[in-house]
Design a protein around this nucleic acid. Structure first.
Lengths: 338, 338
DNA sequence: ACAGCCGATGTTATCGGCAACATTCTAGTT
DNA sequence: AACTAGAATGTTGCCGATAACATCGGCTGT
């Protein structure tokens, strides 16, 4: 029933149906008190003209759109991108759209631009998909007049809400059970709260389990940084297990350890966090903490939408992260209990 | 100079400056014919009230927004996500925003929803970030009234515009130089044009170089599929080199080949396509075709914006993909020329 | 000194939908 | 048959910006 020319408006429909535009508007809103005969005419005209509501006009009047601003640093990182996927799916299902605004954290002018842009978009809410300190600061400095949600953990709450941090002890516990006593952590970049939380959770777990941490190396989530962290060591520590901040760092670390003559898991165990799809095909397949990024993205959007629409709802239960044991972890060399 | 309450409009500014709203509008558009004194007053009022244009109102009137719909199947795939990153950056720099609409290709009703949603968003243009046949079909069936661009290659043009397909011969040539004569391709899913293009480019390259293809296995871009493709073979072919449709498939294939007792690259070479960041840290580091996804995303957006704004501009030159030789490829066993 | 022009600015209508208020119609009551 | 409540529908104005058209005032030419 398509027609050419500009899209049909409620006025066009009203004219075609021989009613007032308001009747059409009422029909569209599902108002009950319309006579069946009128209703039929409107319905027919609507279909005839292939009417599509103009969301722009609607949000001009209502002052609120159905768009959620998604602020992101690096969508191409695995975590953020999968969170974005989940967020986008959930948004669409709820009739919202994600406005993806990338933010170059390095350039203050660019940050300014991005936030400026967001402020003008008449968004229903704002979601931060990844989070560095610079981003959080810029974020907080801008006075958005709409609900704002940071989809990933901040360290203000001590990591209570960060799934990875909460469940990291389980992974360290797995290593302890294998007889590992001396561990090393390869952390993410210090300016990411998520990375600080993981590092802190690692240290707490080590302490609580009576193990020893031989140090925390620093990385930046990338495989390269894991590789470099190991290669930069003048000599390898006496650690029997490495806990990497994420799977990619673990990948790089494993390559470096192998190049330095160690066998995995015979001489040293390596574990990661995230359980990215590739981790099961690393050599050796990586023991890691399985996280549900998509679910996290979905949950964030749902919670944000709830807040937008004024419904205070409790955040849905997320599936619990759990260690996935593969071949990169094995009994500590010379451990009493194999 | 922020004020509380609702955002200031040009009317508020006009009142504060003691001029008409139109003068403010002219000022904002950079109209020259305004007396310096008036100009100053407007400028001051603008600043005073912290005025931000309401993009919604603007696009209601102009019938065109500064938003580009980005339709995507799986943002969490590496390729699409990096294309999205580049697209988003370029869009922001040009003052546009990317509206990310995810599309679940499996569910026709969901496709319908997504496209319906897009049609109502009053977009300036539409960009498809990834492309399966189902998506292309759905896409073409919808009559968008705005410029539409598919950011990735379709096979209609025989792959002329697909960077990977165009430069795959270089990669195959590298294998030929190493003395490989019998190759196998592990393809992507047949319903992706990109995957068909790569497969066809592989076959053409093999033929043109006088080599032999011992078959094309099928995968789905994932490491798992590369692993399974090799493991499912009753017996390994006599191939000395495998060309995977992407790096992740190569990762899985390498693990499977190693598990079946082959050494890489001594017994068999494996190459991938994409050069994802992790590829340099696979074991062995992967020889692959380096692609510039971000640049591709940027270029697509720029081209789309040019079309939106009526400027016919030639697509910018993309950096050429080139083979990156690492340790997963080596001389063919028993080759005359080492 | 006055018509004529042009530069600077103001006024009004418009985009498409929604909401408040206004009007007409229908059906039930007396 | 007149009257009225409430249902059904119509009219007007508004959201914030832009565009078309209108007006005001001063300068120029004769």
């Amino acid at each position: 029933m398509e027609h050419r020319g500009r899209p049909a408006t409620i006025y066009d429909v009203a004219q075609a149906a021989g009613v007032s535009h308001q009747t059409v508007s009422r029909f569209l809103k599902g108002f009950a008190g319309i006579r069946p005969e009128t209703r039929g005419r409107v319905e027919r005209a609507l279909d005839e003209l292939g009417y599509r509501p103009n969301l722009t006009a609607r949000s001009l009047k209502s002052g609120r759109s159905h768009r959620i601003g998604a602020l992101t640093h690096e969508v191409s990182h695995v975590g953020p991108s999968r969170i974005a996927q989940g967020a986008s799916d959930a948004a669409r299902e709820a009739g919202y759209v994600l406005d993806l605004v990338s933010l170059d954290v390095e350039d203050p002018a660019a940050i300014e631009d991005s936030l400026e842009l967001m402020a003008q978009l008449n968004l229903a809410g704002v979601l931060a998909l990844s989070s560095t300190d610079a981003m959080t600061r810029a974020f907080e400095a801008t006075r958005f007049r709409v609900p704002v949600l940071i989809a990933v953990a901040s360290d203000e709450d001590g990591g209570r809400t960060d799934p990875a941090a909460v469940h990291l002890p389980g992974l360290v516990g797995h290593l302890a059970e294998l007889g590992h006593r001396r561990l090393v952590h390869i952390a993410g970049p210090p300016e990411w709260p998520a990375s600080r939380l993981r590092a802190r959770a690692y240290e707490n777990a080590v302490r609580d389990l009576g193990l020893t941490s031989l140090g925390v190396l620093s990385g930046d989530w990338s495989a390269r940084s894991g590789y470099d962290a190991i290669m930069a060591l003048p000599q390898l520590p006496e650690a029997t297990a490495y806990v990497a901040a994420n799977d990619q760092t673990a990948l790089g670390a494993m390559l470096a350890l192998k190049e330095r003559g160690l066998r995995i898991p015979d001489d040293v165990s390596v574990v990661g966090i995230d359980d990215i799809a590739d981790a099961a095909y690393f050599d050796p397949p990586l023991t890691t903490l399985h996280l549900e990024f998509e679910a996290q993205g979905r949950a964030s959007v749902l919670q944000l939408i709830a807040r937008i629409e004024g419904v205070e709802r409790t955040p849905p239960d997320l599936p619990s992260p759990h260690p996935v044991v593969r071949r990169s972890s094995g009994p500590a060399p010379g451990a009493t209990r194999p």
